[in-house]
Amino acid sequence: MTLATDQQPEREGFSPTSLQFLSMRDAVMDHWEREVRAQVAGASDLLGPVLTNTLPAFYDNIAEALSPGHPRENATSDTNAASAHGGERARMTPYGPDQVIHEYQLLRAAIAAVAQERLTLGPSDWTIIDDSIDEAMRQAIRAFTRSHDELRRKVAAALSHDMRTPLSVVLTGAQLIGIAPSMDIARNTASKIAANAVRLRDMMGDLLDTLTYHGDASIPLDLSQFDVFELVKELRDQYCQSREGTLDFEAVGEAVVGFWDRGSMHRALENLVNNAVKYGDGGKIKIKACETRGRLMLSVHNDGRPIPPDQHDRIFEYLRREGGSPAAAGWGIGLPFVKMVAQSHGGTVAVDSSGATGTTFLIDIPVDCRPFVGGGEGQLPG
């Protein structure tokens, strides 16, 4: 079974070109970050983990596609990582679509600049790289736009509901003043009108703030410092003991100490393992934790039936369960909860699934989430 790059510490089956390409990832990302901060509007104030986003995983996917015979045709095949990138850009940055596109263009230039000194890439290699970046741009922009459209719909629905009461008071009060039998009643009614007018004004202010903030739903977090790999091993032991050795469960990776909400991270990881148990066809379940460029990459892999590409984004919607498996009981809130936990920590969750590689869910969040919780919005302190 070929695995997604995140789950392949030994890089088995990679071509020499792919291995060289992987070896220059940090140099490419350093070059890219310098250029993005210098050229992309709104990027200079972003903290490193937010700026990096899901791009290291995307870069690794390009490396896979550069290996002849690997089932990944380009970096966007069988994964929604690019969509996750666009959604996080909408939530965590002041970007517009132009800035998202500009970042990908600079990534292409960074690869070319570093490769010029360290690696010879042929025309077929560049075709894969160009196709990967072009398709990633399209997917990221679609997700970026969709995120803002969803926010506008939510705001419009909330606005139409919450404004009914103060508007009703204003309208009724104006009618009462016209027929008020005394000045005292008119003054009392006018006072109610004024109070509800202030309430409407505040609602409009909240509306404008919401429309100018690129955010989404979040959950309250109680951040503390801990080693996430200890959490991974704890969960592995919990499942292996409860199933009396019937579950093939592997925990790999490294100690990653950061600031997260331990309770919500435990539940999110538990949901992903439950999902792997349900749909993994009895095969091995593998959890991996590692750190790259200030980001935690926490993944859960199973070898079961792949998720169709057109479902990669839909499976994260509330109350949706695809397929007719009798084991898939519940209300379809597990994966949406995982998504909300990742987003609340200032990151995202992506899925990579195909018949050749199995299914990997990746929680990709900052190692230190404190600047991104409670209004930090991923920017450097002024």
Rank of each mutant, 00 (worst) to 15 (best):
L66E: 05
L3F: 10
I193G: 02
H312P: 02
S264F: 10
P16K: 00
G280E: 04
A158M: 13
I333R: 11
E33F: 01
F249H: 09
G375F: 12
L176V: 15
R142S: 09
G122D: 09
I128P: 07
N61V: 00
S83W: 04
F229T: 04
S132D: 07
L151G: 07
G13W: 03
D26Y: 11
L362W: 03
H148C: 09
T246D: 15
I363W: 02
I193Q: 12
R305V: 04
A157K: 10
V349L: 02
K288H: 14
M92T: 09
S325W: 01
R243N: 14
R267Q: 10
N274L: 12
P71S: 00
D202C: 04
A112F: 06
Q99N: 12
S18D: 01
F372Y: 14
V273A: 01
L298A: 02
G173D: 03
G48T: 13
A81M: 13
M137S: 11
G205L: 12
C369V: 06
E254L: 02
Y59F: 15
N196M: 05
F372N: 15
I133M: 07
H312R: 02
T2F: 15
E250L: 10
F316C: 00
A115Y: 01
V277Q: 05
H266N: 14
V273P: 00
Y59T: 05
A41L: 06
A143H: 10
G378N: 10
P71Y: 02
I193E: 07
S15Y: 04
V351P: 00
T212G: 01
A194N: 10
P181T: 04
M137K: 15
S23K: 10
S224V: 13
V198Q: 13
Q238F: 14
E35T: 14
D130E: 15
A113K: 10
A350Q: 06
L221F: 06
S264L: 11
P56E: 03
D202I: 08
Q39G: 08
R146C: 09
A140L: 02
R72Q: 08
E35H: 13
R118D: 07
D202H: 01
R142N: 04
L121D: 12
E150A: 13
A143E: 12
S15F: 08
G42H: 08
C240A: 12
F229D: 06
P68C: 05
T357F: 06
A328G: 08
L119Y: 04
S242H: 03
R89Q: 08
T93I: 02
Q8N: 15
V373E: 01
I141W: 01
Y59H: 08
T359D: 00
M24E: 11
D60P: 08
R89C: 09
R187L: 12
T79I: 00
T52Y: 11
V28C: 14
D6L: 15
A255T: 13
P56Y: 04
D216A: 15
A276R: 02
L200G: 02
G86W: 01
S299R: 05
D281P: 00
